[in-house]
C-alpha cells in the first residue's frame, strides 16, 4: 500500500463488477481525498449506483480493488469488514430507513451497535445528527410520515451517524423541488467543510453538480469517459459528455429499416 493510498479515503483501481453474467462496471478507477466532493455523473443505467454498491461491498467486485482508508473491502471479512464499513456512510436514493423504527431510532441504531453507548445517549446523539441535517423535532416521526426531502435528510443523518471518513450519496437531490434540492446541496457542502470527510455523490442533476462538485467522473456504459475538475470534464470533447452538459440528444446511429430486413428478394 502506497502512502497516497493510506491517506486517501477511497481508492478504486480497475474495478470490474456486475450482476449475474451482465457486466455493469468495466475497469473503473477513482480516488477521493479527505475534504473533497467527487461527483459521479452519467446517464441513467451507466452504472453509477452499482459503483456505490461495489464500494460498500453489496456487489462483489469481479476484478480490481476498492480501498477504503487503505484497506481493501473485498479482501476483508468478519470484524475487519465491519471496521471498514464503520468508516463509511451510505445515504440511499430512497433513504432505506427501517420502517418499523422512528427516525431517531434509525439514526441511533448504528451508534448503539458500534459505539458502546446506552440507548438514551445514542438517541440524544441521533437527535443532534438530525438537527445537523435540518430535522430537529422530527426524531419521533415514523419514516412513512416524512416527506421525500425529509427522508433523504434522515438518510444522510444516519449515514453520518458514526462520523465516517467516506460519505456516499446516491442521487441525494433526485426527485426534489429546486429549493429542497438546494438545501441538500448546502448540507453536503457543510459536511465537506468539516475537512476530514471525503464525499462521493452520484447524481445526474446538473444544478447539484454545478453546486457541489470539486471533481467529477463521468460514466457511460460502465466505463469512465471523462474525469478531472468540473471544468475539465465540461471541456471534454466526447460527444456523450457534451450532450450531457448541454441537455442534448445523443446523435443516433442510422437505424436499420425493418422492411429492408424482411422484404423477400428472389
Amino acid at each position: 500500500m502506497t502512502r497516497a493510498e493510506s491517506t486517501r479515503v477511497l481508492v478504486i483501481e480497475d474495478l470490474v463488477a456486475g450482476y449475474g453474467d451482465t457486466m455493469i462496471l468495466d475497469g473503473i478507477s477513482l480516488a477521493v481525498d479527505p475534504g473533497e466532493i467527487v461527483v459521479v455523473l452519467g446517464a441513467t443505467g451507466s452504472g453509477k449506483s452499482t459503483l456505490l454498491r461495489c464500494i460498500v461491498g453489496l456487489v462483489e467486485a469481479w476484478q480490481g480493488r476498492v480501498l477504503i482508508g487503505g484497506r481493501d473491502i473485498n479482501a476483508a471479512s468478519g470484524v475487519g469488514r465491519e471496521e471498514i464499513l464503520r468508516g463509511v456512510g451510505l445515504a440511499f436514493q430512497e433513504a432505506a430507513l427501517l420502517n418499523s423504527m422512528t427516525t431517531a431510532e434509525n439514526v441511533a441504531l448504528p451508534i448503539m451497535e458500534h459505539w458502546e453507548v446506552d440507548e438514551p445517549t445514542a438517541l440524544m446523539l441521533a437527535r443532534m445528527r438530525l438537527a445537523r441535517v435540518g430535522l430537529a423535532g422530527a426524531g419521533d416521526k415514523m419514516p412513512a410520515e416524512l416527506s421525500g426531502g425529509m427522508r433523504k435528510r434522515a438518510g444522510i443523518a444516519r449515514a453520518i451517524a458514526l462520523e465516517p471518513r467516506l460519505l456516499l450519496l446516491d442521487e441525494p437531490t433526485a426527485g426534489l423541488d429546486p429549493t429542497t434540492a438546494r438545501a441538500i446541496d448546502e448540507l453536503v457542502l457543510g459536511l465537506k467543510a468539516r475537512g476530514d470527510m471525503g464525499i462521493v455523490a452520484v447524481t445526474h442533476e446538473l444544478g447539484s453538480i454545478n453546486t457541489i462538485a470539486d471533481r467529477a467522473v463521468m460514466l457511460a456504459t460502465g466505463t469512465v469517459i471523462a474525469s478531472g475538475t468540473l471544468a475539465e470534464v465540461r471541456a471534454d470533447p466526447d460527444p456523450r459528455v457534451q450532450a450531457f452538459f448541454r441537455r442534448e440528444l445523443l446523435p443516433q446511429a442510422a437505424r436499420k429499416n425493418l422492411v429492408d430486413d424482411l422484404e423477400w428478394r428472389a
Binding site: 453489496l58 427501517l98 441504531l109 451497535e113 444516519r158
Partner: peptide
C-alpha cells in the same frame, strides 16, 4: 418488504 425497500442492504452497509 425490507429487501425491496433496501432496508436489508442499509443494515449491511451499517455493518449490522
Amino acid at each position: 418488504t425490507m429487501v425491496i425497500s433496501e432496508e436489508i442492504d442499509a443494515m449491511r452497509t451499517m455493518a449490522l
